[in-house]
Amino acid sequence: MKKNRTLSIYIVLLMAVILLLFLNICVGSVKVPFSEAIMSLVGKNKDTSFYDIVMLIRFPRAVGAIVLGGGLSLAGFALQSFFHNPIAGPYLLGISSGAKLTVALLFVFAANMVPSAAYGAKIICAFLGAFLAMGFVLLCSKKINNMAMLLVCGIMIGYICSAVTDFVVTFAKEADIVNLHNWTKGSLSGLTWMDDLVLSVIILVASFGLLALSKPLSAYAMGENYAKSVGVNIKRFRVMLVIISSLLAATVTAFAGPVSFVGIAVPHIVRGLTKSTKPIVLIPACFIGGGAFCLLCDFVARVILSPVELSISTVTAFFGAPVVIYILIQRRKRA
């Protein structure tokens, strides 16, 4: 019974990803016919303009959306497990904003860096920022047992980081921050194959790391003491979880800017669909579901006011924030 359900959910999610992938490739300011899209993917029409649009712009962007969406929703899943809180996520806890701050500082103060060096520096900076913000959240969580309060702390940390970012940006030279301005709002535009390669390697490694933790994750759901009593090395487990969730959130932020609510909405929807609490079932489903969700949001962001592009965060918030409200109401009902 349950196995069939899980399998069919996986198939549905994968179909959604494939469908949305073609939708993203074909629809836009220039319409690409489906047949041309297929031709481009197999490399049969290299001399047409369709080929360039598909292979250099839309396809890499869509692949990026899938992997980044998967990474984000896993970051959310990891944080929710860590804090035993269904509405924890990298954006609400200020981790994305922490990464945003350090990357903004890099953009402004090291604007003249060689592009190739800046590339690596951007990822490292994002990771440092995510880690710092996570550190603050952890410090707060030691003092505060109340989950709602912890989220408020996270949101405040996010605001502080955003305020400092705005401050720095205000005093920067206009030329240095052209890219930055788009980026701080969250956007997938301009993702290249090189970007895709780098972010896929990091996110996939982190995702498999999380999958390898699925056994202790399931024990940890019962609470720390019980997890310890059945043989979980709590210290190592928590450190791993912090590193993985920071790494995921940081990588996404480095490439797409802070993207909100994916990390909360997707794991929640996936839990509802699979009716499972088993991390080994949920982790791959969250990844695929996150990919589909981000493809959909990016599609809306690109198409709805075309040729003007919305920031992806606008769209993810529009779909994701109601899910948070729904979770809160459901929990109140049950309690």
């Binding site: 759901a221 019962m222 003491n225 019980y226 609490t277």
Partner: peptide, 12 residues
């Protein structure tokens, strides 16, 4: 081990 803490286990 069995504690007075009844554990969390939401959704399990």
């Amino acid at each position: 081990l069995l504690l007075t803490d009844k554990g969390q286990g939401e959704g399990s």
